[in-house]
């Protein structure tokens, strides 16, 4: 079997984690602050976009996805796409009622 063990030795420094944490707190601050402003229909989009960025940070750094090999990245992609497809097809019904 091919050697996948590269990850095993990867150690992320405390500093990186702290930076990501600060980033996450800032994004939380932004999303709360922005919530007061009414952008109309895109309000929800902005909120979800910020949430997506936050999840992306958690996934790649906290969950080490960045240092895993391609198989894992494909897995995550497949799982997320599956969910997105469920939403899109579900709204193929509801959006056109």
């Amino acid at each position: 079997m091919s050697n996948h063990e590269s990850h095993e030795n990867h150690v992320t420094g405390y500093g990186v984690y702290l930076l990501v944490w600060l980033g996450l707190l800032m994004l939380t601050g932004i999303t709360v602050a922005v919530a007061g402003i009414d952008f109309g229909r895109i309000t929800i989009t902005v909120a979800l976009l910020i949430a997506a960025i936050k999840s992306w940070l958690v996934l790649t750094i906290f969950m080490h996805l960045k240092f895993e090999d391609t198989t894992f990245k494909i897995f995550v992609f497949v799982a997320v796409i599956t969910f997105v497809v469920f939403i899109v097809l579900l709204f193929a019904d509801y959006l056109f009622m």
Binding site: T31, I44, A47, K54
Partner: peptide
């Protein structure tokens, strides 16, 4: 634990912040 966190990251704006 991070997954539990990610779920909350979405729950928070969807319930507490929607305008």
């Amino acid at each position: 634990w991070h997954l539990v966190d990610i779920i909350w990251i979405f729950l928070f704006p969807l319930f507490y912040l929607i305008i």
